[in-house]
Amino acid sequence: MFRFIQIIGDQTAGFILGLLVVFVLALGSLVMNLAPEVYPPFFMLEFDFFFNTIKPIHFWFYILLGIFILFGFNLLFGTIESLIILIHTNILFKKRIAGLLFHLGLLLGLIAHLVEGYWGSQEQLFIGSEIKQIQNIGAVSVGFMKKILHPDGSTKDTKAILKIFSSENDFIEKTVSYNEPAIFDFGMREILLLHGKKRIKHIKLKNSASNKVIAFEVKKPVKVMDGYLVLMGVMSKRMKSPFGLFYWYPPKDKPQRLFIALDLNNIDYNHLTIKNQNFDFDSYQQEDSIMAQIRYNPSLYIMVASLISILCGSLFMLRIR
């Protein structure tokens, strides 16, 4: 049995596998850099990405996974061998303990990545004043958001207060900012701030013929005469007044893009004309909103154990002379 453990946990095999990991990771990095249309610039460790649609271009990942599995076994048996030797010799060599803790940490790290890659999840969504239902966290809305700027106008920090509702009137507040996520389930679930901004809630236009005021919310079509008018968004950068972008969908024609200044003083541009009818800008309302990342990582505690083991290994290593 010990011989079997020695063969699987052989250091030479581990060395070769380690070099293979280096080679395949380098290859993978090259492939990802050459195929930006396949690999988004900011994506996490999720196996679904590679396995939902199996593509030949992901070949490096499948090889990497195979090598890591072999490497994991090598580490496991190498660690068991070290442990057996440690128990039998009963001598606590710093070098051996450091190695043992390091390898144990690495093994746990590999398992954590496997668990995270298989069961972990992430999604991005806008959260505003309207309540959003987030699975396993609850109903969430943004109560307040504040941006802190540098003297040159770039963002220094953003703080937002999230309301997390347990019932209609009961809620708790959690603050999120860059590097300070709202944490749930002892850290396994997080709401992270990606960026915060004022988002248009609605724009009100007045039909000059009927004097009727219509409220438009983003991407919610409103029936106007025989067609539909949709508010697509607001542009405010490098302009005197913010502009609202609308799409007008006539019944039997192509959609048209229409712009309107959201400023009562900008009389040249603060109205839309559709089929000879004028729609004048009346008012608009903004809301605090954040782009959030909802993250679930079930492997957190395995990773923490891995880090502790590696750090302890590091401490022993520092004492080696």
Partner: peptide
């Protein structure tokens, strides 16, 4: 704490 992941597929 920043991105919700200790590892990203970043070069």
């Amino acid at each position: 704490f920043a991105w919700g992941a200790y590892f990203l597929w970043d070069p």
